[in-house]
Nucleic acid binder design. Sequence first.
DNA 1: AATGCACCCAACCGCCATACG
DNA 2: CCGTATGGCGGTTGGGTGCAT
Length: 249
Amino acid sequence: MVPKLAGLLRCGKSCRLRWINYLRPDLKRGAFTEMEEDQIIQLHSRLGNRWSKIASHFAGRTDNEIKNHWNTRIKKRLKLLGVDPVTHKPITDQKTTTDDDDQTSTLELNSPKESSSVQENTSLEILLESHDDDIIEENNNNNNSFKKDIPRTEDKVEELISMDDTTDLLKNYELMMCSGANLEFVGGGSWNQESNTSTTVSACSSSFSSSMEEISDPCLQQWFDNVDSILSWDCFNQLEENLFQLGGK
DNA sequence: AATGCACCCAACCGCCATACG
DNA sequence: CCGTATGGCGGTTGGGTGCAT
């Protein structure tokens, strides 16, 4: 209905994507903080390329944004630190990984020729992964007795991630991250440290204001400012009325 | 000023799962 | 049960941009 009512020559799917990845008012703008990047790396080491799951740990960040950031920045950062971005293991052989041979390096690292320590880590990762999947399975079951006793999947993942000594992999990783913290990223990216201070601003004077009296996020205000300069909120009010009428029919 | 190149990121594509009639 | 529409996801693309030559 959105493209139809808005007079857009777009499919609903395209509009949905535009909303989710760009227009949503709760989106966080600006560069990723170093803390966010580190958290992405840790989550990726556990979840792999499940960007939506990774994104669910970040308020105001989309899976697409995280995926892009991973592919353009973090991958390079890890390679500079000598870590394979696919396996999250140190690159031991002489071969340097590139965007084109990531898969090759993965296969090589996971080959039977690898050392036992690497194999242990791999097993551990699989174990943790299967553990998460087990929880998901259990939570998805209709058996309510399980639901009562077993923590939510997200909580469990958070718990696993916050554990200090979950795996040797992470220990090694933290060491590398610490040593890498002093390195200047030469990829041209700036690692801006964003202020986490939250300010309260009054919402715009549209109909939204009734339900959003206080917006405790500067980026939200920025969004309103930007949108205000482009669109009249009357358009949204009109849309709202049309939708209401359609819904009442 | 023109050109080539690398990088970034919004948008697209295809697949799968789910909802619905 | 089946066909269709829609939602969700990960992989990929291509246009815009900045920079070096």
